[in-house]
Amino acid sequence: MTSILRGAAFAAIVFGLQAVSAVAAEKVYEKPSAFLTRHFGKVPQTRVLKIDGTRQKQLAAILGHRYGQKQVRYWAEGGKSAWILEEIGKTEPITTGFIIRGGKISEVKVLIYRESHGWEVSRPFFTKQFAGATLSGNRLDKNIDGIVGATLSVRALTKLGAAALYLSRQSGE
């Protein structure tokens, strides 16, 4: 009887560890190239926006920390621009695509999610809230409802949305 219980406990632990590792694995919802192709028909010519001192300062105010690169790539065509940005939720970066048209967010799509918790931010019921948002100071002009258990991921995406709008404004697209 004891050995059966021990076996069951061991199996439960192994199963639990596998479940945790499966949840923590990187999840690609859409490849970045597929995201661009879906919006532009093909991957447009890559453009670069330099992050000078002023922009770095403004991005730091939006993100709450220094932006980790000195330039950022984006894609623009037909009056809209695409920005693929990363921000850490809790410990891992969340790769998110933003489409900006006329100074407003047109679409938000979580492309790659790597955290173990908070994947719900990738669901359309959450990302749809960003549609039509513009930049107001260092924040979005719309209130984005949170998700229980995904607070840090929600915060990361909200900051990225503001950063994408700022970068788009700076690029003139």
């Binding site: 490849k31 970045p32 190239s33 661009l36 991957v43 890559t46 670069v48 980790g68 690169q69 000195k70 330039q71 950022v72 790539r73 693929i84």
Partner: peptide
């Protein structure tokens, strides 16, 4: 990386 070792940019599959 620039001369000081700061990241200029990271190019991944899309670039």
């Amino acid at each position: 990386l620039d001369a000081a070792g700061a990241v200029v940019e990271t190019l991944d599959s899309i670039s």
